[in-house]
């Protein structure tokens, strides 16, 4: 499949403040691509450069082979965009806002528009300022989807949506993907990305730290193993084992919680030397992997307890 978004060596700074540095990734046509990173990592900056709201200092950004800055109008014909912070005319009703953007896009399928409104359970007769934050988000989502764009660029789209509408949004994204559309979305809701996206990029302090399939990222995972023994066991005997990165002693020494990368063979064999009451192995979520990338930066508070590194 051809890449619909191509980003190479993208750099953008705000005066002497860091923005993004040498960011590179590609999004294939027809995939749902997740963009992860903590606040201030550079997600929104990247997205706003793609939408030609910011001009890159250096690097190449293309959408469907078109230069994001020079050919931005052509790009906007094929893209739908939802900004991270939505600000619209507070005096217009939801219906008026959608009608206005529909006209600016050269007209939209009214039947599809009404369908979107119904599916997201939006009352379009209220003024924008009267909407709750979740309903404002729905307006943003609908205007992004309503012209059936080839590419959707969504900055934290489900922020403020209730779980039911988050599910409906997930279904909308899947429908777009099934129809051959591409979705590029940033999110803090990692389980959502895990369920929705095929590939994920992680950005940290303005630089890309990882790009890969969700399954690939899980391959670098470490297991979290919790073993409860009939008697106390020495933590040191597990600490020295291959792949064991962290040992935490709980319940007065009866229970060990281990962080293990790679195979579990050595751990299981060592545990077999003692009387095991229970053994559970927890497969890490994408969230665990994501958090792991930020460990060491003081971003993730470690649990208090008897942790042995």
């Amino acid at each position: 499949m051809a890449a619909i978004i191509e980003v190479e060596g993208l750099t953008k700074s705000y005066g002497n403040k860091r923005g993004i540095i040498d960011v590179a990734f590609q999004v294939e046509e027809g995939e749902v691509f997740g963009f992860l990173g903590p606040n201030g990592a550079g997600k929104t900056t990247t997205i706003r450069v793609l939408m030609a709201l910011l001009r890159a200092d250096a690097g190449l950004t293309r959408i469907a082979g078109l230069d994001c800055w020079e050919q931005s109008v052509a790009i906007k014909r094929l893209a739908g965009y939802l900004p991270g912070e939505l600000s619209l005319d507070p005096g217009l009703t939801g219906g008026q806002i959608l009608e206005y953007f529909g006209h600016l896009r050269g007209g939209v399928d009214q039947a599809y528009l009404k369908q979107l409104i119904k599916r997201l359970d939006l009352d379009p007769s209220r003024k924008f300022r009267q909407y709750s934050s979740g309903n404002k988000r729905k307006i943003g989502i609908i205007q992004a989807f309503m012209h059936r764009p080839r590419l959707l660029i969504l900055d934290e789209p489900t922020n403020g949506l209730d779980p039911l509408n988050q599910q409906e949004f997930g279904r909308l994204v899947k429908e777009v993907r099934d129809e051959g559309g591409t979705v590029f979305l940033s999110s803090h809701i990692l389980t959502e990305i895990e369920q929705t996206c095929g590939r994920v990029a992680i950005i940290r302090e303005g630089r890309m730290v990882r790009v890969g399939g969700v399954a690939e990222l899980k391959d670098i995972k470490r297991h979290e193993v919790t073993i409860t023994f009939a008697d106390t066991v020495p933590a040191k005997s597990f600490q020295a084992l291959a792949g064991v990165e962290q040992v935490e002693m709980l319940s007065g020494g009866h229970t060990l919680r281990l962080a293990v990368s790679g195979g579990l063979d050595a751990v299981v064999k060592e545990a077999a030397q003692h009387q095991v009451v229970t053994l559970t192995s927890h497969e890490p979520s994408l969230e665990d992997i994501f958090l792991r990338y930020y460990e060491g930066d003081g971003l993730v508070p470690r649990e208090d307890g008897n942790v042995v590194h």
Binding site: M51, K76, Y81, P83, L86, S87, D89
Partner: peptide, 10 residues
């Protein structure tokens, strides 16, 4: 930010 979505249209 009121120009953001207007400028996201073609």
């Amino acid at each position: 930010g009121r120009q953001e979505l207007v400028l996201a249209t073609p």
